[in-house]
Structure formats: structure tokens, C-alpha cells
Computed example of a mutant assay.
Amino acid sequence: MSSCSDEDLQTPLEHNNTSPEQVSNVQVENFPGKAKITYTLPEDQDLLYVKANYLLENGKEVEVKSSYYNSNMLLEGFSGNKEVDVAITTVNRSEVSSEPVNIKVNPKLAPIYDVFESLETGPTFGGIYLNAENPDREDIAILVMDKDSQGDWVIDDNSIYSSTDEIKQSIRGMDTVQKEFAFVVRDRWLNYTDTLFTEIKPLFEQAIPKSGYRGIVLPNDAPRHDSTPIEGLWDGEIMNWAKVYLTKGTYNEGPHIFTFDLGVEAQLSRVKIWDYPEYYNGRTYYYKSAMKRFQIYGSTELESTGDLDQWILLGEYEETKPSGLPYGEQNDEDYQAANSGFSWDIPIDVPKIRYLRVLCLENWGGGEALAIGEIQVYGNPN
């Protein structure tokens, strides 16, 4: 029997002190914020990997490794504002390195700059909205800043962190006063764009009290699931069975639609809906009867026949999964977005509304039945 220390275990098993040969025929392809290098490997029998070392424009040191099975590697993290020196070395199984091959890469501007150029901001009910295009689905942050009581810029805790291709989000809970804001886009490598400065005055809204909500059954409303009363839509429980609302999945005699009374007339600003997450792999959103495409109708006076031609179409909406993952799969960003509820804006030019109808055009499972955890309507009743 024998034993060895931790120090012994960390020693290379081979002892070849001869430096390996260098890579050759190095080619560079430059992309936005990235560079792909291709090379010819040496014929050393104990070659273990190739590594590239470089310094980002923000001072961060980066090392990228690629095994001897590959003849290329992707270098990332560049802002794209200048040419960067890269040292490429080969390493054998004894962790002995070759002399470096020094090259230069000149990546194009990083994707954050296109995101910044597409950034739109403005007032919305109870806050501000941010729209931006992120076609490469990069992990980015849109940092939202305002001034504290000392007049210093501070980052809002509700800044946007996303990898979705179309960013459409709002930050709410703000007073309806003119206020200075600043916006900057950052990537995971801590590259930053310039700063957009603007003044925005949020529009007034308040949560329409759920105490006044009540269900109404019109002739063409879909029957509900036997275990889920319509009151589950406004009982404060956003996800757990059976304090949610589902229409009967076997119903096929008409659209899956339900109706309810807000209890007051109000100039509506948005309807916030929490989808019902199925008990699948824990709790899964964007699944089965959760609404994917739907319409919201409104009326000031109750039209009792259910004829939709007599109702005002307030909007047609489509839910998207931030990650773009296949059906039945979700990541943490997907979960957090759905668990926080989706807000669906109502046009500002519609009259005051008291009665609402929600019609599911297509659920995530491909059918028309709907499943909702909770609903909250916002607006101005004054």
C-alpha cells in the first residue's frame, strides 16, 4: 500500500521539459465583439491544448483554451473600439508552453452598441418603458439611473437584464413628476456604451381594487374547469391549484372566453396577467393552456348577449418566451419573467371601461383553452 499528498496529485504525470512547437498558419475572422482564430497544430505527440491570452480594452485579462482536438477558438469580450494583441501558445501534457505566436485581432463594434442605438424610452402608466433590439441574443444589461437626494446618479434596482432578441419592458411604481433619467448598455464583459440622458414624466395610474371584481357569465362564455371558480383570478394567489382559473379543455363549441366586472369605470392603462404554471419539472410556464395569443375586449355598459361586435377590442397580444427555448423548456429568466406577471398595455384613446372579456386565440400547447393564475387591472377611475 502507498499514499500520496495533495501536492503529488497535482503534479503532471508526464515529465517532458521540451517546449512544444508553435501553431502555424494563423487566420483571423473578426465579428462584432468577437474574433475567431484558425490555426494549424504542431505534430507534437503529447500536445494537450492551445491557449490565447489577451487584454480587453477595459483592462480585464482573458485566457481562452482549446484542446488539441480543435484547430480554432473563439475570442470574446471585445468592445471593438481598437486593435488588440493576442498571444497564442501551445501546451504539452507536462504543462510546458511554447514560445507565443503574437497576432492582432480587430473585432467589429460589440453588439451592445447596436442595442444602444435601438434604445427607445418614454413615459408609460406609473413609470417608464424601454424598447430595444438585441438580434444576437447577447447577455446584456440596460442600466437605468436616476439621481438620489444628494444629486448623484444611482442605478435603479429594476434595471433590465436580458438575452431576448426584442426587449420591451417597463419599470413602474413611480410618481407622476418630471424626472431625469440616464440609460447605458453593458455586456457581461463589463463593456459600456455611452449614456443616454433624458427627462420623463410617468403617467398616472392606480391598481383598480380587486374587491370590486366579480364574474359574469355571458351566453358564449366558455365553461370553467369544475375545480377553479372565477374568483381565483383575483384572490391574491398567483399560481397554486385550485386558486386559479381554467376553462374546460374539452369545450369545443366556441371560443374560450370569460367576462368580468371591474366594479368601477376607469380609463384603463394595462391588464397584468399571471399565467398558470403547470406541475411539470417543478413548475413550468409557457406550457399547455397558458395563453400565447389572446385578445382583450372592453365595454362601458354590459352587453348581455356576448356579441363581440358590440364590444371594443382593446388589444391583441402575443406572449414570447425570453430565452426562445423549445416548448416545455425554460430557464431562470423565463421563469422570473412569467412569475412576475406580464403587463399588457391598453391604448390611451379608448373610453372608460367597466366590463372586460379575455379571449384565448391560441395557448402554448396549440389549443384554445386558457389557464390564468391571477389578474390585476390598472388605470385611472377619476
Rank of each mutant, 00 (worst) to 15 (best):
D8V: 00
T11G: 00
E14M: 07
P20C: 04
V23Q: 08
S24M: 08
V26W: 13
E29L: 11
F31V: 06
D44Q: 11
D46R: 07
L48P: 09
Y49P: 02
Y49R: 06
N53I: 15
E61M: 12
E63Q: 12
S67A: 12
N70G: 01
M73T: 04
M73A: 02
M73W: 12
G80I: 09
G80M: 11
E83V: 11
V86Q: 00
R93S: 12
S94Q: 09
S97L: 01
S98H: 03
S98T: 05
P100A: 12
V101Y: 08
V101W: 05
N102F: 11
P107S: 06
L109A: 12
L109P: 04
A110M: 04
I112R: 04
Y113N: 05
Y113T: 03
Y113G: 00
Y113K: 02
D114I: 04
E120C: 07
P123N: 00
F125Q: 00
Y129M: 00
A132W: 09
P135A: 09
D136T: 13
D136P: 03
R137P: 03
S149N: 14
D152W: 03
I155A: 10
D156W: 13
N158Y: 12
N158F: 12
S159N: 05
I160C: 06
I160M: 08
D165M: 07
S170W: 05
S170K: 09
V177F: 03
K179R: 14
E180V: 06
V184D: 00
N191D: 02
Y192W: 15
Y192F: 15
E199M: 03
I200N: 10
P209Q: 05
S211W: 06
S211P: 05
I216L: 15
D221N: 10
H225P: 03
D226P: 08
D226G: 06
D226R: 14
D235Q: 08
D235T: 08
N240D: 15
N240H: 15
W241F: 14
A242G: 12
A242P: 13
L246I: 04
K248H: 14
G249N: 13
G254V: 10
H256I: 12
H256L: 05
L262R: 03
G263P: 07
Q267H: 09
V271K: 05
E278G: 14
Y279W: 14
Y279I: 14
Y279C: 05
T284L: 09
Y285W: 09
M291N: 04
F294S: 02
Q295P: 03
I296L: 03
G298W: 04
G298V: 06
S299L: 07
S299F: 04
L302A: 11
S304M: 11
T305L: 02
L314Y: 12
G315P: 01
G315H: 03
S323H: 12
P326Y: 09
Y335W: 15
Y335Q: 10
A338D: 11
N339R: 10
N339P: 00
G341P: 06
W344Y: 15
I348G: 00
V350C: 07
P351N: 02
I353Y: 11
C360Y: 01
W364S: 02
E374P: 01
I375W: 14
V377D: 03
V377C: 01
Y378K: 03
